[in-house]
Design a protein around this nucleic acid. Sequence first.
DNA 1: GGTGGTCGATGACAGATGTCACGCCCACCC
DNA 2: GGGTGGGCGTGACATCTGTCATCGACCACC
Lengths: 206, 206
Amino acid sequence: MTIRLLLADDQALVRGALAALLALEPDLEVVAEVGRADEVVDAARAASVDVCLLDIEMPGDAAVPDGIAAAAALRAHVPGVRSLVVTTFGRPGYLRRALEAGASGFVVKDTPASELADAVRRVHAGFRVVDPLLAGESLAGGSNPLTDREVEVLRVALDGVPVARIAERVHLSPGTVRNYLSSAIGKTGTATRVEAARVARDRGWI
Amino acid sequence: MTIRLLLADDQALVRGALAALLALEPDLEVVAEVGRADEVVDAARAASVDVCLLDIEMPGDAAVPDGIAAAAALRAHVPGVRSLVVTTFGRPGYLRRALEAGASGFVVKDTPASELADAVRRVHAGFRVVDPLLAGESLAGGSNPLTDREVEVLRVALDGVPVARIAERVHLSPGTVRNYLSSAIGKTGTATRVEAARVARDRGWI
DNA sequence: GGTGGTCGATGACAGATGTCACGCCCACCC
DNA sequence: GGGTGGGCGTGACATCTGTCATCGACCACC
């Protein structure tokens, strides 16, 4: 019996290339491909998929905006499927959030191509597959010290927009936004809101 | 006679997957793979390569920091080889810079996998292959209005560091840095230095 | 009822930032 | 020599930002 796979990645070329790579394995079969996070659940159900390979950075809708949310949605709605997150960025917080969302595996796109099929097989067999290097960093990184509001404000601050525009977008007064930013700057040990936002992003806090 | 290919991409998984995809074509053969921009020229020479597939975002050294520089280095040192840039980001400025660097083709990773092999063949045959959507944007985008100093300062400003630290890194006085930033803010039609840096990056100006 | 806690807002302050006009130096050119 | 212009710096100014103390509103809890 072959393992039935779904590929979710917004870059068609990468998706197709991964399909070609996995097609080399006789016990694996790619039965569905999607390019958006919000299409994962339907496709997984329709094709009776065993394992989903999920990129994190993918377009989606408000309910399922990215690959991590797709893993959570799969666990909730199609519990038989296992998720293997395959991502460009080995940010510690991504790993933590992916595991919290119910993903069974987490590999970065730096890993050798030869290891992917094995990761799929182990995930399908019920094991947990995690990049060992990243697992260490993730534990060392600690958990997210930011409050919900700080996260919300930092997300907007990422692009470097002025405080006034951040305030508009999150429906808070400019003064309050500055308070949250100041707090986040303190927690990240940085000097400006943009630095704080970047550090928070790299640690997977936002 | 098969077309001999070199794959340059820092993500091993993507590299391997592309190799599997292209191996499906009987007239194509992947004869070399590298993960750094500064290894492209040597590898291309050693394996007598016909066409190089180059990612842009790749680590490298000071002389060849990315895939675009690798295309330029190939033209200079191994003139027989043609370059096909394969990149995640369809930024208009990337296209312009890639063509200036002597690349024969430019495709984004959104394109269907089925078209890649054809793009390789056309590049090998001496044609120029350019994403048509992007070609339009690139012409509309116009050329780079920034001075060298403005570019240098904006590159550092991308991370949101304070002006004082930008001044240290580029060996200018803080006041001068602010002048360049102010000028760049005006040219980009933005409000802060970080916004200016992001706009400039997205247009391929820095 | 009181009590404590959180959330959002405000005000005040120092320092950073963006803008602008101007000055200096040096290369270049007539 | 006398411009002329670009690159870099300075000073001054208004505004924005980051920090901190404080306040009112609201809610949970005893």
